[in-house]
Design a protein around this nucleic acid. Structure first.
Lengths: 339, 339
DNA sequence: TTGAAAGCGCTAACAT
DNA sequence: ATGTTAGCGCTTTCAA
């Protein structure tokens, strides 16, 4: 059962393939009777235009890509129940989806392996591509961004030929730390986070900014933790119990903050009575936790939407030079800081 | 800036385009030195294979489609806060994504307009397609399913040339109703749901089955409600208050059950003390509501995974005849039934 | 082991 | 208004 092509439709309608193409893409360019004949023939044959062929001929696919390496969370039993809530990447993805559809683009999603293979594969099939920070080797991105517009999500601005959307990490944590100090009288603060991440570095700097502004002693570096390791949170807590709890624990992400709170609770300490704990991101789980999590909310869906806008605008005017975008954040005061 | 093609790579490596193709796709068929020359040339030029051209030549895209018409929830202010939790479609989509990636397929997601245009467009670019029930006109699906394997998610089995994955709607509600009757002594039950939906019809029948088995009077038809209308829930509650509350309100979906509970609470009635309310689906919001929602859990991610499996198996052996699949459900007893 | 060449199904000049 | 035709960039026989 060979599927019908323009040729079949053309033959049946007694016209040329060009007319078939026009009947679909530029209906106004063909006489109404002719158009109806073509459309009828197409319907009778069950014609479905081959998008691949069209993409090749037009050299555009009307499709944007998102490399959504989900950190393979689903596979990681440690994290299974986090999946009950949408995480950062999920919410960004949702924004990306909706913005694509509003603009008439389809969305191609890739994931799985984190070597360059999958992402290159996707790059070869889309008009523009968005990727999350730290998920693809830079050489691979460099090559791809020479071919199509690329935007990196939550990646530092850099002169790498790619566009970047990020949020005001530093300002957010500065404001939050400021709150801890002025509203709750915190003096001894620690900052917990993955030291390798640029975002985390910025957040740490924001914490230091606020502390310095108050002439308080600032930690020299973040207390290291892996992205979402509960076990490490427990070890950290053991350490603090041994040497005395700080006034506040500023965490680089909500997930880490929740893990720290769990570990503290398990060790018999109360949050925020014994120690304040804060996060960053604004995921749903933090809204529902006990105590609810004071945090800095990122506009996650807006990050996804912005990525689409940036890609589309470069597609529409290719001469435009790549521009980065930084989105504002919002301090959300809940209970874990003592409020 | 023309992007490099096989021709450019071939020229630079001093070989033919066939050799370039082989070097990438069948490395074992070309002499190692030749292969290295080709790969080096490719790297130097920043070659990214054009997936569209490949798809056309191979007549397969290694890409599966999901038409994820999200009921435009995001646009509907009435529903804004539901979006904080993953809904049915989101969880199915997640299962679909992961299963695609595990099998080396990319995923093309379409949405937005619900006319046939978008879905036909996607159908023209993928090897297989999954759609949710009631989101695409049947004629359109009929045409598409003649071209590529299609599976409808949560759609009744039918001799329409498409495959279907669904769950045991009838059995699930039968068991749940049975519980209401035997464990909580419910006698007067109403069933609330969208009457047009096939799934809802099945669920209603399950309710009737259980009632009949106990020689209890069964409602003649579902009490109608739109998919996710809070306002209607309030009207229903007003009606019940006027004519006397039933013992139990069996709702066709969790979202409707939560809306009904909200309306009852707003009207000063207590659940489950004054009346039991149950749902169907097993969404996260029902786990966290007050009272927590007794429901029938669908294996949502599993639906998505199954859809992928069914598509891939038909792609792998095209002669296999289309087969449907029904997944089991699980009654989840929480507080809203009185447990 | 490598090369030549014929498509894959469509679009878009250009010609009529 | 419609037809002819040359690609789009790749895969894949078939020959050498």
């Amino acid at each position: 059962m060979k599927t019908p092509t323009v040729y079949d439709v053309a033959q049946r309608a007694g016209v040329s393939i060009a007319t078939v193409s026009f009947a679909f893409r530029r209906p106004e360019k063909v006489r109404p009777e002719t158009r109806d004949r073509v459309l009828d023939a197409a319907r009778e044959l069950g014609y479905v235009p081959n998008g691949t062929a069209r993409g090749l001929a037009q050299r555009r696919t009307q499709c944007l890509g998102l490399y959504a390496y989900h950190y393979l969370l689903a596979e990681h039993p440690d994290n299974a129940d986090w999946r009950a809530f949408p995480l950062y990447v999920d919410e960004v993805q949702r924004g990306f989806e909706l913005a694509c559809w509003e603009r008439g683009y389809a969305l191609m999603l890739g994931g799985g392996a984190s070597d360059g293979g999958v992402v290159t594969d996707i790059a070869g099939r889309v008009d523009g591509l968005a990727v999350f920070a730290q998920t693809v080797p830079p050489e691979v991105m460099a090559t791809i961004s020479q071919r199509i517009p690329v935007v990196e999500i939550s990646e530092p601005t850099g002169a790498d030929g790619m566009a970047h959307v990020s949020v005001d990490n530093r300002g957010g944590v500065r404001d939050l730390t400021e709150h801890l100090v002025t509203a709750h009288g915190a003096r001894r603060l620690v900052f917990v986070g993955e030291p390798e991440s640029h975002d985390v570095g910025e957040r740490f700097r924001g914490c230091v900014d606020a502390l310095r502004a108050h002439k308080l002693r600032a930690p020299r570096a973040p207390v290291g933790i892996r992205a979402e390791a509960r076990v490490e949170a427990e070890q950290l807590v053991q350490g603090w119990l041994a040497e005395g709890l700080p006034d506040a624990i500023v965490c680089a992400t909500d997930q880490q903050a929740l893990a720290v709170i769990d570990a503290l609770t398990a060790a018999g300490r109360r949050v925020p009575e014994d120690v304040a704990v804060t996060g960053f991101d604004g995921i749903v789980a933090g809204r529902l936790s006990e105590p609810s999590l004071t945090t800095v909310r990122q506009p996650m869906a807006e990050l996804g939407r912005s990525a689409v806008e940036m890609l589309v605008s470069r597609l529409d005017s290719p001469r435009r030079k790549v521009a980065d975008r930084q989105l504002p954040v919002e301090v959300v005061l809940r209970h874990s800081c003592g409020c």
